[in-house]
Design a protein around this nucleic acid. Structure first.
Lengths: 232, 232
DNA sequence: GCCTATTGTCTCATTTTATGACAATAATCC
DNA sequence: GGATTATTGTCATAAAATGAGACAATAGGC
């Protein structure tokens, strides 16, 4: 929402991003808190009149994470009439001394396009925008209450991610470019929320012929060092 | 687009429906032709300011097919800037003596929410709306050139339908409530565009425990009569 | 050099899917 | 009414995928 005053946006339409990261153990998402309000929300924004929705979302992710070329997938548009929440929005605007006539369009009914992003947790420095107090990682099962229907958006994003994980083989976007088989398995386990069998998982992944094997990773541990892989 | 003049719509947002039907052999979709223009398009429309997008789409399908309670699934929002096509729209409006100042918002950039519907071909009487000359079934591989990016929307709808067909078991929505195993197989073959093995298909469908078996269907043919099934 | 935890790879059992075989049957033809 | 024909429901066997465990090969600790 940077520089709102100088730009012209498509009315009644926004986007919201569920940005997934994996810290080695847990699946997390980025949640921001609006200044002086205690309101938690997904990072999102508006679409400029001459900007594609995808570009707007890309830009939003970049502003919040500093990352370019992120795996980003549009998964649903939330278009119920009752998802508008002018009270919350008014609190946010008032807290920023922006509750002006020119900004009153933000209090109208909004449809929002849901995106999910998969990023490499290690490469990210979450950056609050001018409206936000903080932007932080939250484990997927320890989310605060979010504004409007954002909890619902997260739920749907997670469903889509789960069903796409094996089909589209996108799990590696949550990892550094080189990773071990164990790391990959832990990503699958975190996303699907179930334990997988090591040998079966390994055989399956190798049989798909999508991984390239690299040198071993010596972790300084008292056991055999695992190979590293990258996505072909 | 009935009664445009008396309603207030969300700007820059529309919906378009890919309405699938199955005539016993081929997968078809409903395409309309605007009056006096030679322009072919998907049935679509706009969203009223106090109407959910789903409801708008439902209403659109009902106006075109007369059917209520249709299987309808939102699958994507097309949000590129270059998908606007003011020339085509102007031709349509001019042909209807509607190219007025009040309607000039229709010439702006539009994002469109894509829906696909699955309906029972036999129950439908396609009805043109006030802007359309005709609305007709076209086999999926014999579509005319459609306006804007509508061919692209159809392509994407077909992809989503294919990937959802087995997963969500929605194929029966293209059939009457009672159908034979052979009919069901032909739906799958038409959608997936590939031959399936009879015995494997039958065993799979029965093992899913989603079908209820009814009385046999005597077609007056010189062979064993097949059972009829319905979706549980 | 022995111990420990983890990894890569086999083996064998189990389940699922592919492919073909075959008897049952509804109408037609003599 | 009995032989004929096309299709259906179901079974039998082969092939492929997956589950579950065994085991030898390490990398570093002691």
């Amino acid at each position: 929402m940077k520089g709102l005053e100088n730009r012209s946006f498509i009315p009644n339409l926004s986007f919201d991003c569920v940005i997934f990261g994996f810290n080695g153990k847990l699946l997390k998402i980025l949640i921001l808190e609006y200044q002086n309000t205690g309101v938690y929300a997904l990072p999102g924004g508006f679409i400029e009149i001459d900007q594609s929705i995808d570009d707007a979302a890309k830009q939003g992710v970049k502003e919040r994470t500093g990352l370019d070329n992120v795996y980003l997938d549009q998964f649903y548009i939330f278009g119920n009439v009752d998802r508008a929440d002018p009270e919350h929005m008014e609190r946010i605007l008032t807290a920023n001394n922006d509750n002006t006539k020119e900004n009153s369009w933000m209090l109208e009914r909004f449809n929002t396009v849901g995106y999910y992003a998969l990023i490499n947790y290690e490469e990210v420095t979450p950056t609050p925008d001018e409206y936000s107090d903080s932007i932080k990682w939250y484990a997927i099962d320890e989310l605060p209450k979010l504004m409007m229907d954002h909890n619902n958006i997260v739920e749907k994003a997670l469903q889509v991610l789960r069903s796409n994980l094996s089909e589209k083989l996108i799990g590696m976007n949550l990892l550094p470019s080189k990773f071990t088989m164990k790391q990959l398995q832990m990503v699958f386990e975190a996303v699907l929320d179930q334990k997988l069998r090591r040998t079966t998982f390994q055989r399956k992944m190798l049989s798909l012929d999508i991984l390239e094997r690299h040198e071993k990773l010596f972790q300084g541990k008292a056991h055999k060092a695992p190979y590293q892989y990258s996505f072909k």
